[in-house]
């Protein structure tokens, strides 16, 4: 894991340096855009202050040598340690992605089971239709639709995490409820595509499993159909979903960036976008690094979960 992270940190750093210019050039450009200007001496002084005059390899070393101490660099734009800038946002990202994953599983598994058991029934066809609809609408589009529909038609808060009067209020029951009211829509939007995918996978798996001989064996024992489905069919059909879980995690993270930007939720998304524009390299690098770590950890957890439910893997 550690060597992987070192390699990843290196690649991230290189990728972030790829666009021409650096943080100072982007500051210059911004000042120029507002009609101001900077003389060459100021620019040079700034470069030296931020250490941007050093060779790239030194900059890289200064960045990663802080990692063991929990120091992930300094955000040039925010004038604060990277960790401080992203800490809270990372939490929101994890919360929203985690809730979206839970939503996906809780909705898709029962629907998948129902659709397979009552294949081609009216409800199955309806779920298939909704599923394809969900698959074909990208998440930024859904976010925009919700923004317009929620604000103009339903007149509910469709924006941000709290109502304006609640933002600075101390924690209370009312503030918590306010948060919930704001949170459910982004969670569902983030989960829609995955839910549709998982329904299709679950339905297909279960139809497959239901043709297996051991299902007939279970029925021939005299087991009630519900128990056959629950114990023998669902148990097997769910295994591939766990591998899919590993693949869902990066989608959740990239999705949370987009949904965060559109619905103005303080996820990692908005500042990540901003840090790339301003070439705030340590911030962008650290965010990328955290995302990759999350992905690795997610895959690891999925593998462990799979080994826990499938004895064939456990023994190898």
């Amino acid at each position: 894991m550690i060597p992987t992270l070192i390699i990843i940190s290196f690649i991230t750093f290189v990728v972030i340096q790829l666009p021409p210019g650096d943080f100072v050039t982007s500051v210059q450009a911004e000042i120029a855009a507002t009609g101001g200007g900077m003389d060459a001496a100021t620019v040079e002084a700034m470069r030296i202050r931020y250490g941007l005059d050093q060779p790239k390899i030194v900059q890289y070393w200064r960045w990663i040598s802080g990692f063991p101490k929990g120091d992930f660099g300094y955000s040039l734009e925010w004038n604060a340690p990277v960790w401080k800038v992203i800490f809270k946002r990372l939490g929101w990202t994890l919360l929203i992605s985690g809730l979206a994953l839970m939503f996906m599983w809780m909705v898709s598994i029962p629907i998948g089971i129902y659709s397979a058991r009552y294949q081609y029934s009216v409800a199955d066809n309806l779920f298939s239709f909704l599923g394809f609809l969900g698959l074909s609408i990208p998440d930024f589009m859904l976010s925009l639709i919700w923004l317009v529909f929620g604000t103009l038609v339903l007149r509910v808060p469709a924006y941000g995490l709290y109502s304006p009067q609640m933002v600075d209020a101390p924690w209370s029951w009312a503030k918590f409820l306010d948060l919930l009211i704001h949170l459910w829509a982004p969670v569902i939007i983030l989960g829609v595509v995955g839910t549709a995918e998982l329904i299709r996978i679950m339905r297909g798996n279960l139809l497959d499993v239901l043709n297996q001989q051991y299902i007939t064996t279970a029925r021939a024992k005299g087991l009630p159909e519900d128990a056959v489905i629950r114990k023998y069919a669902v148990r097997m059909a769910i295994n591939p979903l766990i591998s899919v879980l590993g693949m869902q995690i990066p989608k959740m993270i990239s999705g949370s960036i987009i949904v965060g930007v559109v619905l103005s939720i303080p996820t990692i998304g908005p500042i990540f976008l901003r840090s790339l524009i301003t070439q705030d390299m340590y911030l962008a690098g650290a965010i990328l690094l955290f995302m990759t770590t999350l992905l690795l950890v997610g895959n690891l957890l999925a593998d462990i979960a799979l080994a826990m439910v499938d004895p064939r893997i456990r023994y190898e």
């Binding site: 001989q213 051991y214 029925r219 021939a220 024992k221 005299g222 009630p224 148990r235 097997m236 064939r312």
Partner: peptide, 22 residues
């Protein structure tokens, strides 16, 4: 169901797949 497996039982051709692997 009270007859299946109780009064009439069945064994199948495919021993490889007739028991659940999990």
């Amino acid at each position: 169901r009270s007859i299946r497996g109780h009064e009439i039982a069945m064994v199948f051709q495919e021993p490889m797949t007739s028991l659940s692997p999990v």
